[in-house]
Write a protein that binds this DNA or RNA. Structure first.
Lengths: 146, 146
DNA sequence: ACTGATTTCAACGTAAACGTTAAGTTAGCA
DNA sequence: TGCTAACTTAACGTTTACGTTGAAATCAGT
């Protein structure tokens, strides 16, 4: 039995968009502004092809966009971190030198941390808001008990 | 000593905007689309005047806007609930009838709950995202230890 | 090689959420 | 009463994030 999965049918822009719950326009737009890579150097005019990794990445971007409410510009800054991480990962797997592998791992940490910082700030703000609303709710219930 | 605070100087649109960390344009715009009330019936041409309650409300709107990432249209729906709540509160304080007071309190609960639902959904999504990133982080650290 | 669905590039269009400008008015103060 | 900052309405402009359209090219299946 073969180890590599059958390439099945190459994922094209429509497939990618559907799978990510968005539109082809958005995918092209994201590529245009540098949020998504150029989808493989392709002789102009040829269809874009995507991998599952591309799909994961797009989903991740959409998630960050929706949850963090950042502009696509800010998102790109975060994404550059993601790109770097992906590049590091590739290099990591190619590398044999344990010292280099260590370096790569160390570099990838701050990239993750950067996202975590944003996420946690948002969480704190939401918690504060939730606490306030919950308190209001409790006050009302107490009065109702009287 | 007097019980009522000195009216000081009536808060105008510029003061309100500054205090809320936004611009006068935004305040007028929010009034235009019905997010903020008409700021007291005023003989056309006269300056808008605001109360501290108005300021609280504006801040709350901005907070919901930023944290929940809802459109101003959706925000207005939420705000209508807020309006209703404020109206209920006023009526509540005016009312003597305990039965009516009870009704008012009961009506105001679902309005708060509606906001809480949105907030908690967001919290869950953020938690999931955070957990994933944290897991990635841990994996890397584990590899670094080796 | 043909065909139909999909994609390509390019360009113009649109909705939301304000920014900016202009010409005139009002409010608080000396 | 006169000054000046802040305000008024109205209109047009801008940015972001895509939507829509159209003519030509490509791709997968027969």
């Amino acid at each position: 039995m073969s180890v590599v999965a059958a390439p099945a049918r190459p994922m094209r822009i429509g497939d990618l968009a559907r799978a990510a719950g968005t539109t082809t326009r958005t995918v092209r737009y994201y590529e245009e502004i540098g949020l998504l890579p150029r989808a493989g150097e392709r002789p102009a005019g040829q269809h874009r092809v995507y991998t599952d990794a591309d799909l994961d990445r797009l989903r991740e971007l959409i998630r960050l966009r929706d949850l963090l409410g950042v502009s696509l510009d800010e998102l790109r800054e975060l994404a550059e971190a993601e790109d770097a991480r992906a590049a590091l990962r590739t290099e990591f797997e190619a590398s044999e030198d344990p010292e280099r592998r260590r370096e790569i791992l160390e570099e990838s940490l701050p990239l993750i941390d950067r996202q975590l910082v944003l996420i946690r700030r948002r969480q704190r703000e939401l918690e504060k808001l939730e606490a306030e609303l919950a308190a209001r709710r409790r006050r009302i219930r107490r009065r109702l008990a009287a």
